[in-house]
């Protein structure tokens, strides 16, 4: 049987990709941020997952505004990264697992989450930055990747509560897969930031820390906030934090905190890292 070993929260911003491409990890601006990933990498090496489900939002690479699915899942055996106009280095392709993906899609749909299935899917910085943060030191990606895209770009968006419920459905989907697979879930994006308008540049440390506490011990708190409340506190792009609830919903009710790290500013954002392990 497939089982979820744990979940990770991480930023996915392009500035991190630029810093990695340019080898800036030890520069004063970046050091504390990147050092905070060493325990994450050590945990991943220990649990040695087979599959990473990456919950992220596409920023206009695979999806244009002509068709925006609320929840979409990659159902292919390979995913390519490509030029998204931001000057980022294009990374090597990622191996997928079509059988596993189709099983997840079917199970989610049977649980009333009407996933969009994608047999061709370009993955942008939302997907590749987390993968690179975890595994760029290895010659090849050590896991299969499953892109799980949530629309956080064009409103109306799904809600925080719905993301939590989607995660709970995802857990059932994974756990009903007959093959032995160790699965890790990445909840990516956030934390507080606003890139646009006169209010650009807001970072709300207190709210970010509240969100991290909620993700660990009381996801219902974050799930109870409306999108407008989250935007007021965390900024228009800070709404990405709802994707962390997909990850959290896929874990058990009580989790062990393996690692907790927060740094600010990382470019325009607050960056929170959690490694949460399922006790059983």
């Amino acid at each position: 049987m497939a089982r979820i070993v744990g979940g990770i929260t991480t930023s996915h911003i392009p500035a991190i990709a630029m810093a990695m491409s340019n080898g800036l990890e030890k520069e004063p601006y970046w050091k504390r941020f990147f050092d905070g990933y060493e325990p994450v990498k050590a945990w991943l090496e220990k649990v040695d997952p087979d599959i990473a489900i990456v919950v992220y939002n596409d920023h206009g690479l695979n999806f244009f505004l002509d068709k925006i699915p609320t929840f979409a899942i990659g159902c292919a055996n390979q995913y390519e990264n490509a030029d998204e106009g931001w000057g980022l280095q294009t990374l090597a392709s990622f191996e997928g697992d079509a059988e596993f993906s189709w099983h997840l899609a079917e199970s989610m749909i049977n649980q009333d989450f009407d996933m969009t299935t994608c047999q061709e899917m370009l993955v942008d910085h939302g997907f590749i930055v987390p993968m690179a943060l975890m595994w760029r030191h290895l010659p090849k990606w050590p896991v299969k990747g499953i892109p799980f895209a949530v629309n956080t770009v064009q409103h109306p968006l799904t809600s925080a509560r719905r993301c939590l419920a989607a995660g709970r459905a995802l857990r059932k989907a994974v756990e009903s897969y007959p093959e032995d697979q160790k699965v890790v879930i990445f909840g990516t994006g956030g934390m507080s930031h606003q890139l646009q308008g006169e209010r650009a540049g807001i970072i709300n440390v207190d709210f970010d820390l509240q969100c991290m506490e909620s993700i660990i011990n009381n996801p219902e708190w974050l799930a109870g906030l409306s999108n407008t409340e989250i935007i007021e506190k965390a900024g228009t792009e800070g709404i990405e934090v709802i994707m962390w609830l997909v990850m959290r919903g896929a874990l058990q009710e009580k989790v062990n905190v393996v690692h907790k790290h927060y740094h600010v500013p990382v470019s325009n954002t607050g960056a929170g890292v959690l490694v949460l392990e399922n006790p059983d």
Binding site: G60, G85, W86, G87, V153, L195, E198, A200, G201, S267
Partner: peptide
Amino acid sequence: NVYYLAKLTVPRGVSIQDAGAAFQ
């Protein structure tokens, strides 16, 4: 959309922080 705007500005040497400064 700000993510789409960056596809114009970033390749032309205007970072998201330059744009943020311009907004203000």
